[in-house]
Amino acid sequence: MSGFAFDRDGVLSYVALGDSFSEGLSDPYPDSAETPHGHFRGWADRLAERLADEVRELRYANLAVRGRLARQIVTEQVPRAEQLQPDLVTLAAGGNDILRPGGDPDQIATIVDQGISRLRATGAHVVLFTGIDPEFQPVMRPLRGKIAVYNMHLRAIADAHDCSVVDLWAMRVLGDARAWSWDRLHHSSEGHRRIALRVCEVLGVDPGADWREPWPESPQVAWADARRADARWAREFLVPWIGRRLTGRSSGDGVSPKRPDLAPLRVSG
């Protein structure tokens, strides 16, 4: 991989593609108010904020939409990224496909490979993300083998197209429940913060902090409290999620990208 280089005195353009992971779900902005570009921040916004400190001007677009499958990302978002002609693209895709019954990591990888080929043809530097290791999540643990196979495909794609890889599987700090929101599928604000630090590291940008920092000690959760949390999770998230899968609906129905155009990033506070 040749690495990512940029002119610190120039303009850098960055486009984020993907699903809820890149949209930033479960990481609200600190004031919890609706911003001109949406309520959620996420690792991609955090990365853009850090990059903005490194260059004269950072132009940023985020085309990610929750619930999107790999084919939707390639057919809906990649063409727009081709039009924008950015210097840097991050693409995280395939997670929603893997979660679905019958999701084939071989087929998903073929779709993603097609998208990466198109993005690299524009001259953009592309960053890919492996899937996380779900060993710590009992409900997701049966998918561990499929995710591992898909990760190997992603590494082969990255090698073939000279892309960077953010290895989420190796980020053991994400195995802590505090890296996840209550729905156990999207990252918490702290999880997003640590991922942004890791992406900076992969790109050769000083992250300003260490994503490996150990979690502070936490009190032991009583068995009864843990079971009540499980019941709430099943009632408020798992059942509705299954219902959407059975009816062909998506959490992203009617949702538009929060930053559809490349625009200068204004960092406040």
Rank of each mutant, 00 (worst) to 15 (best):
A5Y: 12
D9E: 11
L12M: 00
L17N: 08
S22A: 15
D27W: 12
S32F: 14
A33H: 07
H37D: 07
G38I: 07
F40T: 00
G42H: 08
W43G: 09
D45N: 03
L47Y: 01
L51T: 05
L51H: 09
V55T: 01
R56C: 07
A61C: 03
V65R: 08
E76P: 09
V78Y: 13
E82L: 15
E82P: 05
E82C: 11
Q83R: 12
Q85A: 15
T90D: 00
A92Q: 03
D97K: 11
D97S: 07
I98K: 02
L99Q: 09
P101M: 09
P101Q: 12
P105L: 06
D106A: 14
I108P: 03
I108L: 08
I108H: 06
T110H: 13
I111H: 08
Q114D: 14
G115T: 13
L119F: 10
R120Q: 13
R120D: 10
F129R: 01
I132L: 11
I132H: 04
E135T: 03
P138C: 01
G145H: 04
K146G: 06
R155E: 08
A158S: 13
A158V: 04
D159A: 15
D162S: 13
C163A: 13
V165F: 12
V166Y: 07
D167F: 04
L168W: 04
W169F: 14
A170H: 08
L174H: 05
L174A: 02
G175C: 01
A177L: 11
W180G: 10
S181C: 06
W182K: 14
H186A: 04
S188G: 05
S189E: 06
G191P: 06
R193C: 07
L197I: 07
E201Q: 03
E201T: 07
E201M: 01
L203C: 05
A209I: 05
D210N: 01
D210A: 02
E213H: 14
P214S: 12
P214D: 11
P216I: 12
D225H: 12
D230Y: 14
A231F: 13
V239N: 00
V239Q: 15
W241C: 10
R244P: 04
L246K: 04
G248Y: 13
S250P: 10
G252N: 11
V255H: 06
S256Q: 15
S256N: 11
R259G: 02
R259S: 01
A263Y: 01
G269D: 07
